[in-house]
Design a binder for these strands. Sequence first.
DNA 1: TGTCGTCCGATTGTTGACAATATTAGGGTA
DNA 2: TACCCTAATATTGTCAACAATCGGACGACA
Lengths: 252, 252
Amino acid sequence: MPDLNDQLGQQGVTLADRVFARLRQAIVEGEIPSGTKISEPELASEYGISRGPLRDAIGRLEACHLVERRPNVGARVVSLTQEDLLELYLLREALEGMAARLAAERMSGRDIDELRKLLKQHQERAELQEGIAYFQTEGDLDFHYRIIKASGNVRLIKLLCDDLYHLMRMYRFQFGMASSRALIAFREHGHIVEAIADRDPEMAELIMRRHIRSSRINVELLFDEKAPKGARATPAIRSASAANGAGAAPPL
Amino acid sequence: MPDLNDQLGQQGVTLADRVFARLRQAIVEGEIPSGTKISEPELASEYGISRGPLRDAIGRLEACHLVERRPNVGARVVSLTQEDLLELYLLREALEGMAARLAAERMSGRDIDELRKLLKQHQERAELQEGIAYFQTEGDLDFHYRIIKASGNVRLIKLLCDDLYHLMRMYRFQFGMASSRALIAFREHGHIVEAIADRDPEMAELIMRRHIRSSRINVELLFDEKAPKGARATPAIRSASAANGAGAAPPL
DNA sequence: TGTCGTCCGATTGTTGACAATATTAGGGTA
DNA sequence: TACCCTAATATTGTCAACAATCGGACGACA
């Protein structure tokens, strides 16, 4: 599982960079639950740094919509709403459809082979775990991630990988994923690869869009049966290491 | 011409907010040319503020891709490349196509009338100036802006209006706009409104996508004849008030 | 003469203290 | 008892100084 956006390899890594990456992971994985107030003095002392770089990091979190900030009040971890998730799916449908089309046009033969290999790995793992863990292990996001990168559109890649996908992961950590669609989704992935291998951009876009649309509708149904009215998200997974008072946090 | 994103009306406006808005405008409108190094001490003294909020503002500029930052080196105003502009158009095609579809589904009748009125105003002005100034006066962006907002998709709106559109404006200030397409574009706007008024989402998306694609191809041709090889942008418009040494900058 | 290494200056990253604002607790009054 | 006003407290926004890093100039050496 390659890191979603590896900022390794670049030269200088500042303090704010590290605390940003760390906070993002903590938020996405639910260690800091939705709606939590981000206290600057508290976090600063926990990480053993000053408020300067911390504020910088919080600013970046705000930029990718993981926290919301109000002047003179503070920042809170975003509260994920049903509507927001559906909007996210609509966006993904348009953007990843485009990515699939571009990938079919520009992806190298070697990368297509790599993609096939990835699916084969997923298949073995999926068979092993009887299809229940395809989403949880993020094999799904990994697949989508590769196609996005294969699009070659720098701005599209940044947008999806740096911003939207962390939000998607956050939703998955909170709500879990319906495993009923795992097998279907896996097959659809296969069809997408086929379309790309056939160099059929329109087909690749079509299937990708349908793929994401199906996911969205599945989520909609899930929401409707669980919470009839558009209710806020109540965290399902608990923080593993949120209650470890002071000390905490290995050095950056 | 309403402000693209009015942060008026909200309560507390911090120093960083104001300097951010100001810097963004200066960059977009070419007052601070492409590729310029952003010197923190210099700007801080010019605006009469400390480096703290200034760094915050620069961070936000980086978030919307108006400046690029390297650790321990500094920030530079982005250099607009031909490839980047074409990527931008591809993104717009997907996103605004989606916006037009959603607008056709959800726009209120009253807002449609408003949109018609806007086009009528544009027509009068366009006739007055013989079609040459449709793009320059940003009537074009204004039209697109309304449809985006009418989509009702909060995330889509933020993405397009807060980030991508400032970049588009920056390109227009640098390269100017081909006025040859002004009349055509105006007519296409009319068709889009008709499709929306007909509550025909598919048609609205189709026309919007074609509209933006035509613009892109027009830009491509323009680039090809001007600079055969993918050359960097050389600023065409000069800063009006860049040379006013010290003093400068009315208070924030 | 060209290249490498070192040093210096300047800029950025970071820190801690100060000022301004919002939240909350408490008391007074209708 | 409920509501409003006031004051205390804590948090955020801002500032100025310190430390770390980078870019360029100068000079030594092949």
